[in-house]
Every structure is written in structure tokens, then in C-alpha cells.
Design a protein around this nucleic acid. Structure first.
Lengths: 229, 229
DNA sequence: ATATTAAATGTATATTTTACATTTATTTAT
DNA sequence: ATAAATAAATGTAAAATATACATTTAATAT
């Protein structure tokens, strides 16, 4: 019926590219792959792929993330549509960029290896294909903004973590140091952290308590969008 | 060269839909048009169109806004890519939504009429085609968020405006009343408003001073993203 | 001169943010 | 058993910001 109305308009290849963030305790990291097709084959690139006719763009992003990491039910958010004419010299491709937050130790090492994937510190990125550098830059800005109002930082940490690890994450994301006392007080005042009896003893003799976060209150705050930073 | 690498992937129609906001002194308004093609011809719709091969998606959005309003150099921002499979019963169309802020009296009345366009109060929207209601909802949320940190509200007001008009705009956007004294103090403390000697005398005997905003300081704040609300 | 109307303005209190140094728990060495 | 070493845990005062709330002022119309 209506379908024929549309037939004369231009059609586009639709790519999906994922900025996959991770945190290893030192710096904020992004997962990159060696591009496997021309043009620019062999150069570092975001993980991406083409959307298919019978899937939503969101599903395509999930599929592509899964293909690389083996992970499902991951925090992922649409970032931006990159639609400049010459952005991909290989053709007129419009790309929808997504960013994902994963726990760095939970992704499948074999899968990463088979894709020639590697974690890069955001401050030491190699040169990237096309407009992928701009995508990473925008994703980092959005992550900062998002993490200021939503407690999604926990997506990047192991299930149990110390307050210093949490602070380290925020410091990595914002590239700035926070006062330990003020940070601790503020985070604890949100009431979304639960202290375990267990301690982390690697990095000090006294040991630092592990915390987990209270998923119920977390959900509450997430929907309300409480100010964190 | 590389071009042939891509040839086997699915291609998509790319639509651009614009949420055009305006403010008439009473409520926040959106500009809607009567859809001119099947399916759902004759129903209220956002202004939209198909992207073309030789233009960026951003340019397509500008073109479509211009076609309806006759306006150029308008504040416009990409909102979101809507990519669900069945969102448009007329075909597999992925839509990139943009939102624009215009001064309601500056758009060409003849153009609006020729497109059967009409301003609707956001609180009294008619039913809309496809997923356009969701687009408007998201746009309104983004506008609230954006206006909290960036002084873009001025894009919706005439060049000179009173403090009460400005407050009215913010109250319309947030659907909440602000304390006049506190609002005035906060806005003036930003130092981006410049008071004129001229007064608006329609709505009171005393008259209210007109203000314009200081573009230089505005640019500064815009880039810094200062907290407004 | 008086009444009318909406604009302009100030202050005290509560809350949040910031800056900053000492004490505590545990392990290791003597 | 005691002392030394290490990083964790903790409190408080000052500054800045946000909130709540009522009176005075400028201009016009009578």
C-alpha cells in the first residue's frame, strides 16, 4: 500500500558503531578493534557493523556488542547519528553511534582476541578510522554528563568494590581529583551503597571495606536522576 | 575501490523529523503539519522529509526546517535516531529527529499556511502519526535538560523581552511556577542580560523594562554550560 | 491629589558545598 | 609482646547557594 509512496527516495547504508567503555582501576578505557575490511583495513576502529532490514537499530547495536564481547543485558545508550556525506570514503554510510559500559573482566577474552580487539586508555588513543575519534570524544562528554546525574558508574566496576575504587573511577571519568572525605560522604549519603563485612586487603594493611550497591534504591535514583557530582 | 565492499548490505530510507518549538507568551508550542502522503495522509505530524544522498543528515534537517518556516541559522540540535522496525507502516524508514527553537513571530505565515501547519500547545497535542508523540516527549525532556544548563531559552523569545516574559517561558518549559524574586536575582546574576531604557507598557501602568541579552557573555556561558535552573 | 496596577526589590534561614588533619585497624618487623 | 608502618576511616567550621516570604515604587487614569 503506502510502501510504494516511498520508492523514489534515496536509500542509505546504516552502520552502528559502539564506544565500549571499561575501567581497570587506573584509567578509563575504550575497546577498539582492527578494522577488517576496506577502506582503511587494518586501522584501529570502533566495533561496528551494518544494520539489517529486519532488526531495530537498537537491536543491531546489541548484536554488534554481543558479537565482540559475548555480553548481553549491558548498559547501552544511543549517542548520536553521524551523517556527514564524506565520513566514510567507502560509501554513503550513516552511522548511529552507541556507547556501552561493561565490566572489563566479564568480556570473553577469546572473542576479543579473535577480533583483534584491545583496550586503550582514553588518554592514549591511537589514530582511528573515519570520524571515530569524534565519536569517542562525544561519548566521553556524554558519559561525564550522564554519570553526574545517574548512578551508572557502577556498571563499570566489579560487583563488589571499595570506596577508593569508586572514587578512582569518577576521577578517571572526570580527569580530576576529588577530596576523599567529601566524596565518601556524598556517595554514602545517597543511601545506595551497602557495606559488606569483607575487606579488600591487597592495597593496605588495614584493608578497605567492600561495598555493593542496593539495586532497589539504585533504580529509584536512576529514574529520578539525582545529582551525584 | 572500497565502495564495492559494502554492496551487499541492506539499505534504508532515512527520514528527518523536526520538533519545532515556539513560545507565544502563554504556553510552550510545537509546530505540526498535516501529513501530505500515505500512509496516514491528513493526520497531524511533525514536519519531516527524506534525506538525500548528497547532503548530510544535519543539512537535510536544516532544509526541511527552512522549507516549512523560511528560517535559516536557527538553533537546532539532533535529538535521537528512531529505528524500530515497524515504526512507519509505509516502509522501513529510520528517522533522525531534530529539535529546533524558533521565534514564533519570525516564521513565514504564508509558508505555514501552504503546509497546513499549526502551532499546538504541548499540553494539548492532537494524536500524531507513527512514533511522533514519543519524539515530542523526548524532545521536551531534552529541552528541559538543555535549558537547565545552557541559556538557549532566549532563542524562543523576541529580541527584547521583559523579565516576566522570560520567567513565563521557563515556567512553560518546566510546567512549574518559580518565585519571581529568586528567579530574577538568579538570571540577572549570570550577567548575560542587558537592561534597555525602554519599557513594555501593555500589561501594566508602571511598565516593565525590556532586556536584551549580551551575546558575548552568552557564548561564554554556552560553552561552559553554567547551571541556570 | 488619589487610586490603581503590576514591577522592583531585601533579608533571614536552611541547605549544600568546600576545605582541611587526626585517629584507627591491621600487618610486619623487632 | 611491642613498635613501626601503612592506608582507611572519620569530623568540623566556613563559605556559598538556595529557599521562603511582603513591602515599596513608578507610572497612569480618575
Amino acid at each position: 500500500m503506502g510502501r510504494i509512496e516511498y520508492k523514489n527516495y534515496d536509500r542509505f547504508l546504516l552502520a552502528v558503531d559502539c564506544i565500549i567503555f571499561g575501567f581497570d582501576g587506573t584509567g578509563l578505557k575504550a575497546l577498539l578493534v582492527k578494522r577488517g575490511l576496506e577502506p582503511e583495513i587494518g586501522k584501529w576502529s570502533l566495533m561496528g557493523g551494518f544494520a539489517e532490514k529486519d532488526e531495530s537499530v537498537d537491536s543491531a547495536a546489541q548484536r554488534i556488542l554481543y558479537r565482540l564481547t559475548g555480553l548481553e543485558k549491558i548498559y547501552m545508550e544511543q549517542l548520536h547519528c553521524f551523517g556527514d556525506v564524506g565520513r566514510d570514503p567507502g560509501g554513503r554510510v550513516v552511522s548511529i553511534a552507541y556507547f556501552a559500559l561493561i565490566k572489563i573482566d566479564e568480556s570473553s577474552t577469546e572473542l576479543l582476541n579473535s577480533h583483534n580487539a584491545k583496550w586503550f586508555d582514553l588518554k592514549k588513543l591511537p589514530s582511528l578510522v573515519f570520524d571515530h575519534k569524534a565519536m569517542v570524544k562525544l561519548a566521553k562528554e556524554r558519559l561525564q554528563q550522564k554519570v553526574s546525574n545517574h548512578p551508572i558508574g557502577f556498571e563499570l566496576l566489579p560487583n563488589k568494590f571499595t570506596l577508593q575504587q569508586l572514587q578512582g573511577l569518577y576521577e578517571a571519568i572526570f580527569e580530576t581529583a576529588f577530596d576523599k572525605r567529601n566524596f565518601t560522604r556524598k556517595i554514602l549519603s545517597l543511601g545506595i551503597l551497602q557495606r559488606l563485612d569483607e575487606k579488600e586487603k591487597e592495597s593496605s594493611k588495614k584493608g578497605a571495606f567492600y561495598y555493593i550497591f542496593d539495586k532497589k534504591k539504585y533504580k529509584q535514583l536512576e529514574s529520578e536522576g539525582i545529582k551525584l557530582i
